[in-house]
Design a protein around this nucleic acid. Structure first.
Lengths: 260, 260
DNA sequence: GTTCGTAAATTGGTATGACCAGTTGACCAT
DNA sequence: ATGGTCAACTGGTCATACCAATTTACGAAC
């Protein structure tokens, strides 16, 4: 327990991290050209292959646009990047948390989950329903001994089944990204979201609505469940933001209108 | 008019397209190893750099996992890929449309838009409101001469402003991906969604609610607007799917339970 | 039989240098 | 003002070599 996987980074990963960080934090404004590949080689002290692998990834992420002969141009990531950038934005390079990103994830989760529940109720297979039943039982067991970490894990798996049962590939893929982002805050959130995590009855109500094929009820129950965690986290984020407004860097409230 | 930008593809783009296609269409099952880089070079007839650039992109998209010495393993994209994969999945390599993906996009849009409207109403700046006003006027002008293509473009820009005004980065990024996917079907959908596109009053009602800062009303109005296009497209998709069920390939209804 | 260590084969990671191909911009002829 | 030409710059492709981590097979030790 407590052991963590050792993170290994290749050179191109490091290049990608540095460049994407510079772009997201605005040190390379939209429209300007990145330094030429051969110059980046020299500046960063790596070979051109590593640079190119990183640049291709930046292009795929929607952060830059590469054109032969014309250089590599920085794009406006707010207008061009995909949802995958969330993970990159959650932590700044000084390891502070971007509260605006955390809030956004919670808001999105709160809206998607009820519709996932609705669709799952309308489309779930027998296998899905069985899986939900088993998860609810496990949650009961974990709740008996108040094992919060286990409950959190089971809740994630609960929604895993739900989103697959919804038959909506856009929700599945969004969920993957949101889960990845959420996972990075897991240790922090396990306490904050305890009320939602411990609500086995809430999870059970959704599962039973799914079992009955009652989309409306499933949606309503999911809404109620989400409300608990969402309220707790948004409250915390709000408080932290207010506390952060003291320094000159007005962080998030300012960032909203700053770069458009 | 009618001229289109010439699409240029690099070798690594082509490699990426081929490999991601194979994976998404299931020819490489999750868990198996991709051929070694040096072997892919020979098979595809390109140098190793091009292969590596493509593999790095596949890894970033969540389709494979690369480990030095251990080969490149195919992942379960439904469980690991990000939302960006939507665009890759919309068209199969035989150029047929994946109706399940189209349906998913419409469902997600219908759920996100009302919450975007709600948040925008609560957080919009004066500049946002001005931009919305101008767009509504332009829409009126376009509606006078029933210029559907122009109306569609203005509606997209309307939502562009809304999503930026919502102050939710997750919505912004999701919207970028959804717009990209939607754009590929634009010519088809312009007719199908005409009722929603022509509904200038519906757009105006949302803009006015935003102006008043009335989140509840904005949400409700957006819901009503979305309902028009969503109903039309989902109806069409349903009809097409029923028609497709005649051949043995039961396409989407079957795909749902096939690979889990 | 299991466990552990070792060495060879395999696979990805990095480096170098060369040349091809498209873009840009300065310059010039018309 | 227009269009052509050429040089410089930038990304795209290629070949080859070697480094580093993992896997596998084999055998020694328990």
């Amino acid at each position: 327990m407590g052991l963590r996987k050792i993170a290994k980074k290749t050179l191109s990963d490091e290049v990608y991290d540095q460049l994407s960080g510079e772009i997201v934090e605005g040190h390379f404004g939209a429209g300007v050209n990145l330094p030429a590949e051969r110059q980046l080689c020299e500046t960063l002290g790596v070979n051109r292959g590593a640079i190119r692998e990183a640049l291709k990834r930046l292009a795929q992420a929607g952060l830059v646009s590469i054109s032969q002969g014309g250089g590599t141009k920085v794009l406006d990531f707010r207008r061009n990047a995909g949802l995958d950038l969330l993970g990159r934005m959650l932590f700044r390079r000084d390891n502070t948390i971007n509260l605006g990103v955390a809030r956004s994830v919670m808001e999105m989760r709160a809206v998607l989950a009820p519709d996932i529940a609705r669709l799952c109720a309308e489309r779930a297979t027998e296998a899905d329903i069985t899986a939900l039943r088993e998860l609810i039982e496990s949650m009961h067991a974990a709740a008996e001994v108040d094992d919060l970490a286990e409950l959190q894990d089971l809740s994630l798996r609960f929604w895993d089944v739900m989103v697959r049962g919804s038959g909506n590939i856009a929700y599945e893929l969004s969920f993957n990204t949101l889960r990845e982002t959420y996972d990075r805050l897991r240790e922090v959130l396990v306490q904050v979201m305890a009320e939602e995590t411990r609500d086995v009855a809430g999870h059970r109500a959704i599962a039973e609505a799914v079992e009955r094929g009652d989309g409306g009820a499933a949606k309503h129950m999911a809404d109620a469940l989400m409300e608990k965690g969402t309220r707790a986290v948004l409250g915390l984020v709000g408080a932290l933001q207010d506390a952060t407004l003291t320094p000159d860097e007005a962080d998030d409230s300012a960032a909203k209108g700053s770069d458009r």
